[in-house]
Design a protein around this nucleic acid. Structure first.
Lengths: 156, 156
DNA sequence: GGGAGATGGTTGCATATGCAACTACCATCC
DNA sequence: GGATGGTAGTTGCATATGCAACCATCTCCC
């Protein structure tokens, strides 16, 4: 197969995939062991929590959660059924709607946060020292950044 | 929410998740643009390709691909239907079966590899220099290592 | 030999997820 | 005002994925 991709690049790629899956699986295991919802639930609720007034447009939220639009629609449906958030019409744009965190949503967030936090610490951030963590963050941020050619464009 | 998780840890965690999703999405986009199968297909075929004799036990394969057992069963079903591999009974263990790459499977692998390779290079490995790549690999490998293993090898 | 328990693999079922089509609405041009 | 094109969000459909139950087989121990 004559791979012109250097071994170091391959090793890095494999380490990247492997680390992601293993770490997230360990953290998810901690959540399910306590009968808590998945990371996606947390991300949506937390994304709303961070926003001023605890509400955000669906599209902004989808971007934050790294989920497709349709996926977010379904997830928000579930969260709304559980009473953790409500949908409000956007006053300035009839097409858009805002997801608004409820008191119960904040409560749910508080309840799951300790487990999530401990998972991140145990399986991720506490396994590296401060310098290493900073280095890792900088490298990952560069990888996540939009490619230069498409920096100004909306399509990915 | 009083997060005792330091901001640097949070930033690192978010960068980790974000980088993974964005990079893999870009690479997958390249594959689908050429009507090629997904990364999972490639990983299975390549996992077999690497093995001596181009065959491996299902369980070993599942570990390599980072997929659940049942997920692998289904994926291998599809690949077998396409004629890219065959299942053989394991001579030494009646429970186990081996997946054996076929000539067509090797062919399929050769066909998709250039696109995959270019995707990895363009969206991942070529965005960092050699030193950075080595650093990243080392850090990710430590994160991926089993907790017990990590505990025993505490250092730095 | 034969039962108890563990392991490899498959399948039923439920859930998750994405793409593409669709509706409703906004913005622009004429 | 009305047509045209673009955007926000939802839904139909197909697929992917995992957990847990299940069968067959192996290992261990008596």
């Amino acid at each position: 197969m004559k791979p012109p991709l250097p071994p170091a690049h391959r090793a890095a790629w494999r380490a990247f995939i492997s680390a992601y899956w293993r770490v997230t699986a360990r953290i998810e295991a901690g959540l399910t062991a306590r009968a808590l919802p998945t990371l996606a639930w947390y991300d949506v609720l937390y994304g709303l929590y961070l926003a001023p007034g605890h509400h955000r447009r669906m599209s902004e939220l989808a971007d934050h959660v790294l989920l497709s639009r349709s996926g977010l629609t379904r997830l928000v449906d579930k969260l709304e059924q559980k009473g953790l958030l409500v949908r409000n019409a956007c006053p300035s744009d009839g097409r858009a709607s805002h997801a608004q965190l409820t008191a119960r949503g904040v409560e749910a967030l508080r309840k799951m946060w300790p487990t999530y936090r401990d998972g991140i610490a145990a399986h991720f951030s506490s396994r590296l020292n401060a310098n290493e963590l900073a280095t890792l963050t900088a490298l990952l941020d560069r990888l996540a950044a939009e490619p230069a050619e498409q920096a100004g464009r909306k399509e990915s």
